[in-house]
Computed example of a mutant assay.
Amino acid sequence: MGATQAGIPARVLATPAALALIDKLQAGHGRLMFHQSGGCCDGSAPMCYPAGEFIVGDYDRLLGEIGGMPFYISGPQFEYWQHTQLIIDVVPGRGGMFSLEGPHGLRFLTRSRLFTDEEAAALAAV
Rank of each mutant, 00 (worst) to 15 (best):
G2L: 09
G2W: 00
A3R: 13
Q5H: 05
Q5M: 13
Q5G: 02
A6S: 14
A6Y: 02
G7F: 12
G7H: 12
A10I: 10
R11W: 03
L13N: 04
L13H: 08
L13T: 15
L13D: 13
A14W: 11
T15H: 04
T15A: 03
T15M: 09
L21C: 08
D23M: 02
K24T: 02
K24Y: 09
L25W: 08
Q26T: 05
A27R: 12
A27W: 01
G28I: 04
G30L: 07
R31D: 02
L32F: 07
M33S: 13
M33R: 10
F34K: 09
G39F: 05
G39N: 05
C40E: 12
C40L: 12
C40N: 13
C40M: 15
C41N: 15
C41I: 01
C41V: 09
G43A: 01
S44C: 11
A45N: 02
P50Y: 12
G52I: 07
G52R: 11
I55H: 03
G57T: 04
Y59K: 02
Y59P: 00
L62K: 11
L62W: 14
G64R: 02
E65S: 05
G68D: 11
G68K: 06
M69W: 00
P70E: 14
Y72Q: 06
Y72D: 09
Y72M: 04
I73G: 04
S74Q: 10
Q77E: 14
F78N: 14
E79R: 15
W81T: 07
H83I: 04
I87P: 06
I88Y: 05
V91M: 04
P92C: 00
G93D: 15
G93A: 05
R94E: 15
G95Y: 14
G96N: 08
G96S: 12
G96C: 06
F98P: 01
S99N: 12
L100C: 11
E101K: 06
G102W: 14
H104K: 07
G105V: 13
G105S: 10
L106M: 10
L106F: 15
F108I: 08
T110F: 00
R111S: 06
R113W: 03
R113G: 07
T116C: 06
D117K: 12
E118G: 04
A120L: 12
A120W: 04
L123E: 01
A124S: 08
A124N: 08
A125C: 01
